[in-house]
Simulated scan of single mutants.
Amino acid sequence: MSFQAYIDNIQKKTGKTPEDFKKLAEEKGFVSSGQVVVKATQITDWLKKEFELGHGHAMAIYASLKGKTS
């Protein structure tokens, strides 16, 4: 599955874009000044619990928070 397909599926499931997740991550203190400041596990655990994402989809959001766009 391509990175964009992961992002598209996440948006369909949650109604949230990568930018929405970035704002939420900033509110949680996971992202500061545009930089991820916690370990990937903290972010993926949050996404799995709160949004019921699978590991691969949670990692796609983590990658988008780190600046990956494709």
Rank of each mutant, 00 (worst) to 15 (best):
A60Q: 03
E27Q: 14
D8R: 13
L53W: 03
N9L: 11
E19N: 12
F51H: 10
Q11A: 12
T17Y: 00
E19R: 05
E52V: 01
I10A: 05
D45P: 00
S70A: 14
A58N: 09
I10Q: 00
V36M: 01
T41F: 04
D45A: 13
K23V: 06
V37N: 02
F30I: 09
S33D: 15
K16Y: 05
Y6G: 02
W46N: 06
I7W: 00
F51I: 03
K22W: 06
G15Y: 11
G29P: 09
A5M: 11
M59C: 13
I61H: 01
N9Q: 13
D45V: 04
I43T: 03
G29F: 07
A25P: 10
A60F: 05
Q35V: 15
V31R: 02
I10W: 05
A60N: 10
L24M: 14
K12N: 09
F30T: 08
V31C: 08
I43E: 03
A60R: 13
E26G: 10
T44N: 07
K49C: 00
S32F: 11
K39C: 07
K49L: 10
S64V: 08
D45Q: 11
T41V: 14
K13N: 07
Q35G: 00
L24P: 03
K13E: 14
K68G: 03
D20H: 04
A60K: 12
F30L: 02
F51L: 02
G67M: 13
G34Q: 04
K49H: 11
A63D: 15
G15H: 06
K39F: 11
S64T: 13
Q4Y: 04
A40Q: 15
L65D: 09
Q35I: 12
T69G: 02
K13V: 10
K13R: 10
K23I: 12
I10S: 03
K39I: 11
G29K: 00
A60G: 08
K66W: 03
I61C: 08
L47W: 05
T17L: 06
K12G: 00
W46D: 01
G34P: 14
E50W: 02
I43R: 04
T69R: 15
F3L: 07
T41L: 11
L65E: 05
H55A: 15
E26Y: 05
G54R: 14
A63L: 12
G15I: 09
G34D: 09
K28C: 01
Q35R: 14
V31D: 05
L53I: 05
K12V: 09
V38W: 04
S64I: 01
K22I: 01
S2D: 15
H57G: 10
E50C: 00
I43P: 00
K22Q: 03
T69F: 05
L65M: 09
S32V: 14
S33K: 13
G56T: 13
S32N: 13
T17V: 03
E19I: 03
H55D: 14
Y62T: 08
Q42W: 09
A25Y: 06
Q35A: 13
T44H: 01
K68Y: 15
L47H: 02
G15N: 04
T14M: 02
M1C: 11
L65T: 13
G15S: 10
L53M: 06
D20I: 05
V38S: 05
K68N: 01
L65R: 10
